[in-house]
Design a binder for these strands. Structure first.
Lengths: 96, 96
DNA sequence: TGAATAGTTGAGCAAGTATTCATATATTAC
DNA sequence: GTAATATATGAATACTTGCTCAACTATTCA
C-alpha cells in the first residue's frame, strides 16, 4: 500500500469527518439538499451553537459550503466523494 | 436520507475505525497481507503495546482477525468493505 | 434608531482517546 | 524446572473532542 505519513494523516482526517453521529446526521440531511442552520438544529434536536461548531469543522475540511441569504446561512455538500463514502458505509452497516 | 439514530451511530463507529493515522497505517499494512504484531510495530515505528491496543479496538469492531501461531499473533483484515472505504478515501486525498 | 432574529465564536468543562509504562500470560528453548 | 520471547492488558497521563453558555456580529423589521 506504501502510504506516506502525510497520506495517513489526511485519510484519518477525511474519515474523522464522518466519525461522529452528529456529523453523520448533518451530512445525511445535506445529501437531501441545501439546508439552513436552524432547520438542521431542529431536525437533529441540537442547539444551533452545537450545529454551528460542527459545521465549522466540516467547512474547514471543505466538505460543506455556506451560502448566506439575509440573516440565514444555507449549507450544502461541497464534496461528492464524501457522499460515496457515506453510502458505502451505510450499505455496510445496513446489510453486512 | 432518513437515517435512524442507530444507523448514524453505527456509521460513525465504522468511520471511526479509520479516523486515526495509526489505524489507517495498520489497515494499509494489513491490506498487503497477514502480519504479526511485532512486524507492524517495527514498520509503523510504534511500540508493540500501542499497536496491540489499537488492534484490540479493530478486533472489537470485527475489522481484523487474529490467528495465533506459537507465541506470535498474525492479524489480517476481516472486512473487505473497509478496504473499499480505504481506497475511496485514498483516491480522494491523492487526486482530489 | 432600537429590538428581534440567525448564526458564529471563544472559553470552559466533561468525556473520550492514544500512548507509555509496568505487569501479566502464554509459548518456546534450554 | 528456569529463562527468554511475543503479545496482551490495566493504570496513568496527555491530548483531543463535542457540547453548553455567554457574548458577539450581521441582518431585518418596526
Amino acid at each position: 500500500m506504501k502510504l506516506t505519513d502525510i497520506n495517513a494523516i489526511q485519510l484519518a482526517e477525511l474519515f474523522s469527518a464522518l466519525s461522529d453521529a452528529s456529523r453523520v446526521r448533518i451530512i445525511s440531511l445535506l445529501i437531501e439538499g441545501e439546508t439552513r442552520v436552524s432547520s438542521l438544529a431542529e431536525e437533529l434536536n441540537m442547539t444551533e451553537s452545537a450545529v454551528s461548531h460542527q459545521l465549522r469543522g466540516l467547512r474547514q475540511m471543505r466538505l460543506v459550503r455556506a451560502r448566506k441569504s439575509g440573516r440565514q446561512v444555507f449549507y450544502s455538500l461541497d464534496d461528492k466523494h464524501v457522499i460515496e463514502l457515506f453510502h458505502r458505509g451505510l450499505d455496510h452497516v445496513q446489510h453486512g
